[in-house]
Amino acid sequence: MFEDRILLWKFRCGDRDAFRLIYDKYAGDLLNLAANLLADKNQAEDVVQDVFISFVESIERFRLTGSLKGYLATCIVNRSRDYMRKKKRQQTAAENRLGQTTSGVKNPLQLAINSEELLKLSHALTELPYQQRETIVLRLHGEMRFRQIARLNNVSVKTIQSRYRYGLEKLRSAMNGEVKK
């Protein structure tokens, strides 16, 4: 974590390479997080780009209080929620379902789903209510603790644990027992 503090300090002093190092270190995980939250590769790219631009814009007054990865992940979550709200207003959910994009090999951000089983699971994840999906993605891809996710949502840990449990239950049902081997 202290390495991040040094990179931040160097970046604040005008060292662009320090920013590149921060970007290289976290961009992959953040894109993955955003893509799983939004189930949309293009929006995921936009969200990550926006988060990094905001980060750059605020660097002079930015003060790190926890981990940089945690901070950036939280920004991704907040920005993703904005996108989801916007998307709800503008489009029907079906237009952007992940299933319709996975067949497109031209996608620059391609979901590496090689098995039919995983493809089905990704569909099921997309169909979950957003709060449950977000909880599962933050827990399993963002490596956040229930307590952190609860704080982020301003709800109790129990609520988050319930969302997680119900979400997994729905995924299991959607898989119709195919996960049981």
Binding site: N36, L109, A112, I136
Partner: peptide, 9 residues
């Protein structure tokens, strides 16, 4: 399996 749903960039 959810963890395996990884978007490769």
């Amino acid at each position: 399996q959810v963890k395996q749903l990884r978007y490769e960039t």
